[in-house]
Structure formats: C-alpha cells, structure tokens
Design a protein around this nucleic acid. Structure first.
Lengths: 338, 338
DNA sequence: GTGAAAGCGCTAACAT
DNA sequence: ATGTTAGCGCTTTCAC
C-alpha cells in the first residue's frame, strides 16, 4: 500500500494534454471525441490508474449505477437476503453497496437518516431490510423487505398467512385437535398474519382454539421460554404446538427436553422460517420455509424496475412470496390416550 | 415511500432564517454559534428530517467517519469476517460501508478501481477482503485480509501453514497413511501454504504423498465436485482426505453421500475454515478454525490505528492469527482391510 | 456570531 | 471536436 495524493480527472487531462471536459466525455459517452484523442485519454487513464470518484461524479450527475441495501446487522436473515440481492445485481450494470446501520442508531427511524445520507447523491435506489417503518421520504426509489408494519408502498413479504395455515393443516392432518400456539412479537405484521393463519386453519377444520393454549412467544428464545414451559407443564397439555418462528420453536425443544418430554412422541412441534439452526435440533424441526434468498432477489428486481420507470412512478406494489412446509422429524400423529 | 426532492442544507437554512454556513457550523462543530440560533437550526433540521449527503460533505471535508470493506461476494468467509469487522466498528464513531464487487470485474485489479472509486472522497479507510493483490495505491489507509499474494504492507493473515500441518497430523495420528488432498485455488498464498503444510506434515511422519491423490478443489463447491468424485471412485481410494477449505469439504460430503460412502466409516475428512456450515453436514466436519471473526476484528483495529496516526505512517505490519483443530465427527481411524 | 465566497472533483450545457 | 463555464451540496476560510 502506498499512500498518495488522489489521482483526479485533472491529472489525466494534463497527462493527455486535453481539458477535463474531454476526459469526462471520453469516459462517459465517448462520442464527439476524435479517435486519436480518445486513445490518448484512455492511455493516460490506464497509466495513472484513474477511476472517477463516486462521490464527486454522482453529486453532479445524479446517476450512480449503485444500489444500496440498508441492514441493521450482519445476521443470518440479512445475509441470506443479501445473497439474493447480489445474485440479481450481479447480472446488471449496477453495483451493490451495503450500509450497516449501527445497531440502535436512535432506535426507530434510523432508516430515514441513512436513506437521506446515501440517497440521491450516492445511490440510484435503496432496499430497506426489515425496517421498523418503510414510510420514509426519499428522492430515490425504495423497496422494503419484510417491514415491521404494513406501511410500505413497495415491499416484498412472504406469505405468512398461508404458511401458518399449511403448518396448522399439517398438524390437523396428523390428527391433532388440541393445538397450542406460540405467537410472535406483538405489533409486527408477520406475527399478526401467522396467528391469523393458525386461527383460520383451525376454524376451517372445525377445531376449537383453546385460548389458554395461546402463549406469547415474542420471536425470541428468551421470551418464548416461560410460555413454552407453561404449555408443557399443564396437566392437559396440547398434543401439538405451532411456534411462530424457529427461534421460539428451538427454545420449546430445550424446555421439553429439560422436562423429560419427547418430541414428537409426547408433543409435536412446527416452527417457522427454516433457519439453518432448525436442522440442528434433536429432532430436526418441521418448519415453514420462506425462501429468504428469493425475497432478496424479488426486492432487487422490484427496485430495478422502479429505477427504470423513474418518470411515471408505477403503482405501489407488494410482492408476496410463497412459503412451503418442510417436513422433518418433530411432527407425528398424536399419542394414544394415556 | 414518497419520492420527493432531496432536503438540502439550503432548505434548512431557509427554514431557520440563517445562512447555509451557519447551519453547517451548528451541525459540525457547534461552537461560535449563539445558543438561540443553534436551537432554531436544530429544530428546522429535526422538522425537515435533514441529514447531510455523504457524497457532498466528504467531497469537501475529506473526513467521512466511514470505513469501507471491499468483498467480491457474500459468502461464508466474507460474512464471518464482516461480522468481526462490524463488531469493532460498532463501538466507534465510524460506520461501515460494504462494497460488493461484481465477481469478475476485469479479473485482477478490481480492488484498485474500487479503492479509487470510494477512497478519499467517501471513506477514511478501506479493508480489502482476499484481494488478488494488496499492492494498491490509495489516498486512504488500506488493510488487506488474507491477500492472495504476499504483497500487502498491512495485512491480517491466519497461520495456514501450521493449520494444515495440525489437520494432517490429526489424520496421521488416527493411523491414516493414504491421504488425499483437495487443494485450494492456484495462485493464492493461502492455497500454497495449506498445501505446503500438508506435505511437510506427511514428510515429517514419513508418509509418502501419492501425487495422484492430489486434486485441485479450487476452494469452491463447483470446482471441488469433479476431483472429489474422482478421489472417491477410484478402486484404491484414500482412507482420508484433507480439503483445503470447508466449502470443498462440504461438497466432498455431498459427493460421498451420493456415492453411498459413509464418512468417517469409509473415508475420513478434514476441512479448513470452520465456517458455520461445517456444523451442518452429516456428520459435522472436523476442521481447522481460523477464527475468521477475529481476523475481521484485527483488520478493523489495524485500520483504525492507521487512520489515527495518519501523519506519521507507522511501519507496515502483518498480524498472523493462530489456527486450531476442531475435532468433530468426520474423522476416525481408517477402516480395516476390505 | 454570522454570512459571503471559494472550491472539493466531477458532468453537462453552452460556446467556439 | 474541444474547451469554457456553471454548479451539484457541502465545509471552510475570511470578512464583517
């Protein structure tokens, strides 16, 4: 590494014996420049190792060929999503910039600040990953993935409703009727949809929902622990439980094991998300897969389309991706009468 | 999402009834501004939701509080590294920008272009992840992680040589003598070191290396597939294989499974890297941990130190992180005579 | 304490 | 076909 002054367009211009405007023309459009000049400029560029500054050029041109993804952290969900995004971006003229927002970043609304900081002058469009709100003003197109509320104009979601329904149906098909539910985090759109899916599947099957069998799992291991325990220790415990996400399902497994209960012999369990860890429990979890990779790809495609049609903003659109049941070994028919 | 004109410093100035210079002062240093003006400006900022444009401000100030990480792709190694980097960055005043270089990007030298594109005007320093060459001119400090050649002035490496040696020793200790090797990508420093470690451990144990048992795995699943198959289908297949990274080891597992071969009963396997996925194979992989997370943290700390001491550039430094063997279930003594 | 003005590196009219 | 000029949004002297 050598620290040195930045090579600017002026250096190139001087080396090639032309004006900076000519250099810019050669680099950007290329036309209206004589072949010989063009060659001379390109040689100078090559020799000096010049690349235009993204900050400076975008400031002026309002076109960057860069799209940004805003994430709060590098964790399994965002990583999988980024893979999907980058797979799409890779086949285009665009490049991907990932901005990792410091965790708490003035709590909610962090996305607004970052969109503003990067938008317009550095990127042509932005993908917000699980924003607390997608209701953000921006001078560039925005797409939200799995926003916490329903506010997003352009968003990619997964079909939580149907996913929850097929998970519940699976339990129902196995013969379960007394089914418990570990709900998600209150206030989140996905939590609402998953609970609704559970209830509607139960209703369609004519199975009554025992409200005392509904616990608030909160999507996290810690918050799911107590409700899991109370579900498992009651004398008339459910024969099956549907957990609103894998993290709480995994906690449910721990609690059951600790209590000496076997899954699925004593109680069946279905999770949601199909995170890699769901394979590692004993037994591996039956769960609902939401194809995070595809969500990323869909978001990238949507954003690209938005950018392309900049002038006439197309109608706000929601893409809802399908979910599917992954049957592993945590579900079985209900135990016979004890 | 609402598309709207960008809120600029002028909008704030107008709303607060001051000049843009005053707004800038309030936002940047704060001193030499009357409290009442300051309050008025802050209110306007708040109300309009203004955040300065990174592109514009850095162009002028040459200070951004942003550090960049340049990666070629979102894959397990870079993800783990990014986690380590972001853990360090998170506790500082800096923010993390990740630039994902389109794969082939004019092959080698992609890092030069990106450093130039972002450096100076957008970031205060850059971390290059597995660059093909770290011999890049830059106007900002640079740190390379696992550079492909030995060129880097400031670099973080892991002790590939020792790691490969202990992996091979483990196989040797179990009683294996006929050991195959799936090498890394030709030309990379790490690949060379790992192969050398393998060979030197074999030599030290007086075990002959059968050159026909050496395949080029290339560090990727796709490229490792054919050599893995040819190793496994030969009549005198090795009793153990050392794969130069986990990605190729995982592919080796797939191929073995497909061929109806059991690991470690039919053939033992050691990987390298200890990526999270190495836990998910059946059986979980014995592998060499190079603490990728720590490498990221070390790189971030090194870069921060470089930035701090900008004026008197400190001596180039190499940090070499230790490796250690993680024994899981893919290795066992060789099968008895068939 | 505040504003006017210069200029960071670059692109896009507009001249020539 | 090439150069001159204005200005993107911002920070930073430098006057007042």
């Amino acid at each position: 590494m050598r620290i040195q002054r930045r090579i600017t367009i002026s250096d190139v211009a001087e080396a090639a014996g032309v004006s900076i405007a000519t250099v810019s023309k050669v680099l950007n459009q290329g036309y209206r420049v004589s072949p010989s000049t063009s060659t001379r400029v390109r040689e100078a560029v090559e020799q000096l190792g010049y690349t235009s500054s993204l900050g400076a050029s975008s400031l002026r041109s309002h076109r960057t060929n860069v799209i940004a993804a805003l994430v709060t952290a590098i964790e399994p969900f965002s990583v999988e999503l980024l893979k999907g995004i980058s797979a799409v971006i890779h086949d285009t003229e665009y490049e991907l910039l990932i901005y990792v927002g410091g965790q708490q970043r003035s709590e909610a609304g962090w996305e607004r600040a970052y969109v503003s900081r990067l938008g317009d002058t550095l990127t042509d469009g932005t993908i917000l990953v699980t924003p607390s709100s997608a209701d953000v003003a921006s001078s560039v197109p925005l797409v939200a993935v799995d926003p916490h509320d329903g506010s997003a104009a352009n968003a990619v979601l997964s079909d939580n409703l149907t996913g929850a329904r097929i998970a519940t149906d699976h339990l129902l098909d196995l013969g379960h009727r007394r089914i418990g539910f570990l709900s998600g985090r209150a206030g989140l759109e996905s939590a609402r949809a998953r609970e609704q899916g559970f209830r509607s599947a139960m209703a369609a099957a004519g199975a009554a929902v025992d409200e005392s069998l509904i616990g608030v799992g909160g999507y996290r291991a810690k918050s799911a622990s107590a409700p899991a325990r109370s579900l498992l220790t009651r004398p008339d415990r459910p024969t099956a439980v549907f957990a609103a996400n894998d993290l709480s399902a995994i906690e449910f497994v721990s609690v059951a094991t600790e209590l000496g209960l076997r899954i699925p012999d004593d109680v069946s369990l279905v999770g949601f998300d199909n995170i890699p860890e769901s394979l590692l429990t004993d037994p591996p979890l039956t769960t609902v897969d939401q194809s995070i990779h595809d969500m990323g790809a869909a978001a990238a495609n949507m954003l690209l389309a938005l950018i392309k049609s900049e002038d006439r903003p197309p109608a706000p659109s929601h893409v809802v991706l399908p979910t599917r049941l992954v049957i592993r070994r945590s579900t079985a028919p209900p135990p016979g009468p004890r």
